[in-house]
Simulated scan of single mutants.
Amino acid sequence: MTWTLPEPMLSSPVPEPRLRPGWAAELKWDGFRALLSVDAGKVVLRSRRGTEMGPAFPEIVAGAAQLPDATALDGELVVWEEGRLAFERLQNRLQRRGAGATRAADEAPVHFVTFDLLRLSGTNTTRWPYQRRRAALESLFAARQLTAPWALCPSTTDAEAVREWLTWGAVGMEGVVYKRLDGAYEPGVRGWLKYKVRETTEAIVGAVTGPAASPRGLLLGRYDDQGRLQYVGRTTTLARATGNTIGSHLTPGEPGHPWTGWTFSAGWGTQRALEVHLVQPDVVMEVAIDVALDSAGRWRHPARAHRVRTDIGVDQVPLFGE
Rank of each mutant, 00 (worst) to 15 (best):
M1S: 14
W3C: 04
W3T: 08
S12P: 02
P13N: 01
V14F: 03
P15R: 06
E16A: 08
R20F: 12
R20T: 14
P21F: 14
L35M: 15
A40W: 08
L45K: 12
A56C: 10
A62N: 02
A64S: 14
A64L: 10
D69G: 10
A72F: 03
V78N: 07
E82Y: 03
G83C: 11
L94N: 05
Q95M: 08
A99D: 07
A104T: 02
A104C: 04
V113K: 05
D116R: 06
G122A: 15
N124S: 13
N124L: 13
N124R: 13
T125K: 11
R127C: 13
R134L: 12
A135F: 13
A136N: 07
A148N: 05
P149Q: 09
L152Q: 12
L152G: 08
T157M: 12
D158H: 12
A161Q: 13
A161C: 06
R163L: 07
R163C: 05
R163F: 06
L166W: 04
T167N: 09
G175N: 02
K179C: 05
R180V: 07
D182K: 06
G183W: 01
Y185R: 00
E186L: 15
E186Q: 15
V197M: 03
G206S: 08
V208W: 06
R216K: 11
G217C: 02
L219K: 04
Y223Q: 00
D224N: 07
D224E: 02
R228N: 04
L229K: 00
V232N: 00
T236H: 09
L238G: 00
A239P: 05
A239F: 03
I246N: 11
S248G: 14
H249S: 10
L250M: 04
G256C: 00
H257C: 09
W259N: 01
W259R: 03
F264Q: 11
R272Y: 13
V276N: 00
L278C: 04
V291E: 05
D294S: 04
A305S: 10
G313C: 09
L319H: 15
L319A: 12
F320T: 00
G321C: 03
